Simulated scan of single mutants.
Amino acid sequence: MDAAQWDERYRASAGGVWATQPPAVVREIAATLSPGTAIDVATGDGRTALWLAGRGWACTGIDFSSAGLALAAARPGGDAVTWTTADVHDWEPAAPVDLVVSCYLHLPDSAAAVARIADWVAPGGTLVVLGHDVENIAAGGHGPTDPTILYTPELLRGALDERFRIERCERVTRTSADAELRDGHPTAAVDTLLHAVRE
C-alpha cells in the first residue's frame, strides 16, 4: 500500500487502526531502558511513540501517512511527540538517537530498510524491530500474505553489520490478547523480533 491508500484507511477508521498499546515484547524491552531520545519508524496512528513519550522519552514518530499522524497528534499526550510525515527511504534524523523502534514495517526491500534505520542508532543505543514472520501465513495469523515482504530471523540478522550486538533475533508468537488491530483479531500471530545494541 502507498501513502494515499494508508491515508484512506486511517480516514475511514473510527479513532484509529492499531491497538492502543505497543506490542508486549516492545514494551518489555523498552521498559528496561533509561529514557532518552527515540524514533518510532512507521508510527502509524502513534501507539508506540505515545507510549514512549509517556515514559519520558523524547520521541519522534515518522510515517508516510499524514492522516495516520493526524490521528496520533490528536490523542492524549500527542503534543509530547514530534510527528514527521516522511518516507523511511528518504528521511534522516538530525542526530543519532538512543532507541529506534520499528513495528510492522513491511517493504519489498525490508532488509535494506532495516539496515538504513539501524544507522540512526547512537553508539550504546538500542534497535528493536518487530514484524510479521513468513511463518505467519501458514499459521493463519493476521497480516500480509506476500512472503516477499515478510520477515525471518535470518533476514533481520543479516541486515545488521558488526557495529551491533544482537541480544535477540527470533520468532515470537503473539496471542490474541496482544492484538495488532484496535478491534482485535481472534488468532495468534507469528512475528520476528530483532533486539540489538550498537557497540
Rank of each mutant, 00 (worst) to 15 (best):
V128G: 03
A118D: 01
V100N: 04
N136M: 09
A72V: 03
W83M: 09
V128I: 14
T148L: 10
Y104M: 11
T85P: 00
L99H: 03
T152M: 04
P147E: 13
P123W: 15
T126L: 07
L99K: 02
D133Y: 14
W91K: 09
L130H: 07
T148M: 07
E170F: 04
E92M: 11
G131A: 07
R75K: 11
G77H: 06
I62H: 01
H106T: 11
P93L: 09
T84M: 13
R157E: 02
T173Q: 11
T145N: 11
G77A: 12
A80E: 12
G140Q: 09
I149W: 15
A95D: 14
V88P: 00
A95E: 15
V114F: 00
H89Y: 10
V101Y: 03
G77V: 12
A122M: 14
A70P: 00
I117W: 04
A86D: 08
N136K: 03
S110W: 00
A139Y: 06
R171V: 12
V81L: 06
W91G: 03
A80S: 13
D109G: 08
D109L: 09
G124M: 14
R174V: 15
H106V: 08
R168P: 04
D98I: 05
H132P: 06
L71R: 06
G78I: 07
C103W: 01
V114E: 00
